[in-house]
């Protein structure tokens, strides 16, 4: 099928403002949007720039706005979009070039919340810390995060409020707060209780809608709020 692509272009070396490039392409309906981007880059315009790596939705490189919503280009099939597709970079972060945005702030927020197991007790060599399957299940959903940035850059609060840590950072804090082996919950909760923490969330659900891994992001944030409120 023939598909028209409108892709937002911006090269800081020569452009003062972003513009839209138009490309027409013959594709299979079952092709991924990423396949089309590659085809345009390889056959039509070598300067088109985007991030990509694993091409099947586990590395998180190619999050972008496809027809106005944050998606991974490698997880979207063209048949679900029809013959006109608009592709733009994620919102809220500086565009480095074309569809590539600066992720430093994103990872910065992530690092603020101690995204690692805090537990200095030595369980002894040659054995594991025990954890029941039920305790393991509690934080299973948030271990799926691949840090693509789709949730954080879908959130209307992060677009305008640069203090907000954003959904992805909270998801990764959640993954440790509810891990029965972790002992750093209080410190993380203290940060999450601050002005840039969970209380900025207005339960808009854009993050959940955008998550390519199907993580119930809003649920995780709400759970943290309830924990802060009840101390449980």
């Amino acid at each position: 099928m023939e598909v028209q692509f409108r892709i937002e272009r911006f090269n800081p070396d020569q452009d003062t403002r972003p513009w839209f490039g138009e490309y027409t392409l013959e594709v299979e309906p079952t092709d991924r949007v990423l396949d089309a981007l590659n085809e345009i880059k390889w056959k039509q315009d070598g300067t088109l720039t985007f991030r990509r790596s694993c091409a099947h939705g586990v590395c998180g490189s190619d999050a972008m706005r496809i027809n106005g919503r944050n998606r991974l280009a490698c997880k979207e099939l063209i048949r679900d979009y029809g013959d006109k597709i608009t592709i733009e970079p994620m919102l809220g972060y500086r565009v480095i070039k074309d569809l590539v945005v600066d992720m430093e702030d994103f990872f910065d927020s992530y690092r603020t919340l101690q995204p690692y197991l805090v537990n200095d007790e030595n369980p002894g060599a040659g054995r594991e810390r025990l954890q029941s399957p039920e305790d393991r299940e509690v934080f299973d959903d948030t271990t799926k995060c691949i840090m693509c940035g789709a949730c954080t850059t879908a959130c209307p609060i992060t677009w305008t409020n640069k203090d907000f840590l954003g959904p992805a950072a909270i998801v990764n804090a959640h993954r440790f707060i509810y891990d029965s082996r972790d002992k750093g919950a209080n410190e993380r909760l203290e940060v999450l209780n601050s002005k840039s923490g969970v209380w900025r969330c207005r339960t808009i659900f854009n993050c959940t809608e955008a998550c390519p891994r199907g993580i119930e992001v809003t649920r995780a944030i709400e759970q943290v709020k309830r924990t802060l409120l009840t101390g449980e």
Binding site: N119, E128, S132
Partner: peptide, 23 residues
């Protein structure tokens, strides 16, 4: 491999668990 897996668990890797809580 045995030590390395335990080391990963100590670092926080969320392995699936047996009913007794082992990996």
């Amino acid at each position: 491999a045995i030590d390395a897996v335990y080391e990963l668990e100590h670092m926080g890797l969320p392995f699936n668990r047996t009913p007794e809580g082992k990996i």
